[in-house]
Amino acid sequence: MSEISLLEVNRLITSFETDRGLLRAVDQVSFKIPQGKTVGIVGESGCGKSVTAMSIVGLLPQPSGKILGGEIKFKGEDLLHCSEKRMQEIRGGEIGVIFQEPMAALNPVHRVGRQVAEVFRVHKKMGKKDAWDAATEMLALLKIPAPEKRMMDYPHHLSGGMRQRVVIALALACRPSLLIADEPTTALDVTVQAQILDLLENLQNEIGMSVILITHDLGVIAETCDEVVVMYAGRVVESAPVDELFGNPQHAYTKALLRSIPTLDTPPKSRLYTIPGTVAGLGEHTYGCRFCQRLGINASISRERPPFKEVTPGHWLEICKNCSEL
């Protein structure tokens, strides 16, 4: 990776305080987001992908969520040790965030226009009129038909796709240099998903921002990302440029994931590959290779944490001899 990194996450550890003690949801996760690129984070529910994203923007559920170690560097600035005031400037200013459920991100009792204009008033210190105009322009940029009219609507007036556009408008209002999109299209139909992804790509080129795209959909990853980070049980098991990851997957989990999805080319009613076992609960993780744990490979030989190394330029891998032969 010779490009300049916009964001660097190094050995991040995020835990949650629960009745059962401190549970580690993210266990020493490291990756880099290059300038202007889209990086996908993929993994099953509970693998820590959303927690990683929330850690970056300091939006962990409080008071249970705690970052216990590592560093997050955004344009050289340490995000873990900056003030809450500075964090508020960065969130919505330099880093935009989109969540999966647009209805939860919008305030149901305020008009759409007021919510989008608020971003301009807070971050750009604009006056009422200017902020309103800027917000209308933003909706137009997101190809929302009749933006002046939509500004006066409440979120429940809009369809799912339109709502997600409004949320994107909120996130992109200040032309951030980084956009974190957590499952932005999961709740949408494929046709609307295609519209939104297309729109995001165009806006990305226009603004020149980097994007972290969190999804469990490998198809979306393949079509939109430059690089992919695969997470399993709180750890990064593999990360590589997209062609390399799909063309030459190395980790047993990545391979298994790629094999288990039906595509339009798999013969009808054929048996799909299934990954044996289930993901262990947060409190039950081994220190050794966690995919070995799932497969039931003898735990005594995998008590050591597998090393995470760069095997070829840009291709990082958690190297575990015990499950790699599968």
Binding site: P145, S159, G160, G161, M162, V190, T191, V192, Q193, A194, Q195, L197, D198, D217, L218, G219, V220, I221, A222, E223, V242, D243, F246, G247, L258, I261, T263, L264
Partner: peptide
């Protein structure tokens, strides 16, 4: 509808038919 389905293979480049609206 078919052209909008994302294909999990980065080598496949297709022209999508983008529908307007909902």
């Amino acid at each position: 509808l078919l052209s909008a389905v994302p294909i999990p293979d980065p080598r496949v480049k297709r022209k999508k038919i983008l529908l307007e609206g909902d």
